[in-house]
């Protein structure tokens, strides 16, 4: 564990807490893409299948439970909670996210480190996480407003994988044989997808006004 990895995990945790805070306190999920949340639930479900078979540390298991619990409860809130699901703009959240799942599964079957059930699903979760934000970014362009908790959520979510990239660079130089091209490329693609959002997000800080 290094400072970049810890900062990345804390940023990721903060992103989830910001979203839960928004949905739970103001009982609204306006501007939040249910499709992105469903993709993240699948990402965690397929990445943490080994949660009961391989113990790494209390921290690791705890964080996996937090990410699993929060992503599924956010999906539950947005689908079934009486007040929240009314605020979900279904007409705008139309990105065909199932078109992302299949190519990621095929790619995981073709490119992986080991051809085992757990490894292929784990690799699938990496590819899927890289593109999971797309429905949310498309929805953001339609709702045209980043000046709210959803904007903070996306900012933190994009930042966490960027910090993980620093962690991978650090580990590459400090740990012999630490090479994971699949993870690195998927993480890089994921972070690059946020470049456009980061640009407008920082403009908003500099301009000090809501950016369209």
């Amino acid at each position: 564990m290094n400072i970049f990895r810890l900062a990345g995990d804390m940023t990721h945790l903060a992103s989830v807490l910001v979203l839960l805070l928004k949905i739970h306190t103001i009982k609204s999920c306006a501007g939040v893409s249910l499709r992105t949340q469903e993709l993240y639930a699948i990402v965690f479900a397929t990445r943490y299948l080994d949660i009961f078979t391989s113990f790494v540390s209390v921290y690791n298991t705890f964080m996996k439970l937090v990410f699993l619990g929060s992503s599924f409860s956010i999906v539950w809130y947005m689908r079934y909670h009486k007040a929240v699901h009314r605020t979900y703009d279904r007409e705008q959240d139309t990105f065909r996210h199932w078109f992302l799942v299949l190519p990621c599964l095929v790619l995981a079957l073709l490119i992986h480190e080991k051809f085992t059930f757990l490894e292929v699903l784990w690799t699938f979760s990496l590819y899927l996480e890289a593109v999971a934000i797309l429905p949310q970014l498309v929805l953001l362009q339609r709702t045209r407003n980043i000046d709210n908790l959803t904007g903070q959520y996306i900012f933190l979510l994009g930042g966490y994988r960027g910090l993980y990239i620093l962690n991978w660079i650090y580990r590459y130089f400090t740990e012999p044989h630490f090479v994971h091209w699949i993870t690195w490329i998927a993480g890089l693609v994921q972070t690059l997808l946020y470049a456009d959002f980061f640009y407008y997000y920082f403009l908003r800080f500099i301009g000090g006004r809501g950016v369209e």
Partner: peptide, 10 residues
């Protein structure tokens, strides 16, 4: 690389 080191991350 050993199995664990690539799976010790979230």
């Amino acid at each position: 690389s050993t199995e664990s080191d690539s799976k010790d991350e979230l």
